[in-house]
Structures are given as C-alpha cells and as structure tokens.
C-alpha cells in the first residue's frame, strides 16, 4: 500500500529533517523552517508533526546524550526514513507535472548544497 500523501506542513517538516541530516531535533527543525519559509511556527506544531510523521513511519527518532544548554535534558533526534523520502518525492513529482508549461513568476527558493 502506498503511504498516504503528507500534508503541506508535513512536507515542510520532512524536508527540514532531511536537510539537517544528523542534526534534526525539535529546535533545529523549527529554526530551519523559520529560516527557509520566513514564517513563524510554534514549537508545539513542529513537535506534533514530528510525532505524527514518526507514527506514519516517515521519520524515526532516538534520544541523544543530555546537554547542559538544555538544562541537562536529552535531545530527541529525528531522521527521515525511506518511506518519508518516497512521500515527499511523490508529491514533488505530481507538482512538477502540474507546473509543466506554466510561467514560474515566483521561482522556488534555490536549494543550496
């Protein structure tokens, strides 16, 4: 069964985790999202989506060692799974097909790296 297509915000979160590779956890994902999309999101929204995606097996998580700047608390590190990658790619392909032949007045932000 093909995975259910991720929603807009889920796609954003999946992409942010993918980009961050090994360093994806709540705070860094939030920073990445805010930096790239230019709009503010709440920690709760980010975390809820992370947990939901983990339940959908598009992400997986593990606990890191505690760090002092976090008041001695561990980070919950997330990484994207095969299924997660397939999900965003599938959406992208569909979107690309839809955009074919249309003017790109507002080009998508450039990917770096």
């Amino acid at each position: 069964m093909a995975p259910k297509r991720p929603s807009d915000f889920e796609q954003q979160v999946l992409l942010a985790v993918w980009r961050l590779e090994d360093g994806a956890y709540g705070a860094s994902v939030r920073d990445e999202l805010e930096a790239r999309t230019g709009s503010r999101v709440t920690q709760g929204a980010v975390y809820t989506t992370l947990i939901r995606l983990e339940k959908k097996a598009m992400l997986q998580s593990r606990l890191s060692d505690p760090t002092p700047v976090r008041g001695g608390r561990a980070k919950r590190l997330f990484s994207i799974t095969e299924r997660g990658r397939a999900g965003v790619l599938q959406v992208r392909r569909a979107m690309n097909r839809l955009w074919e032949g249309l003017p790109t007045a507002d080009p998508a932000p450039r990917e770096s790296g």
Partner: peptide, 11 residues
C-alpha cells in the same frame, strides 16, 4: 516531555 522542554529551553 524531556525532548520538548529541552528544545524550548535551548531556544
């Protein structure tokens, strides 16, 4: 709890 509170604390 720990992960979430830690993230908030960091920010």
């Amino acid at each position: 709890r720990d992960g979430f509170v830690g993230d908030l604390e960091e920010r």
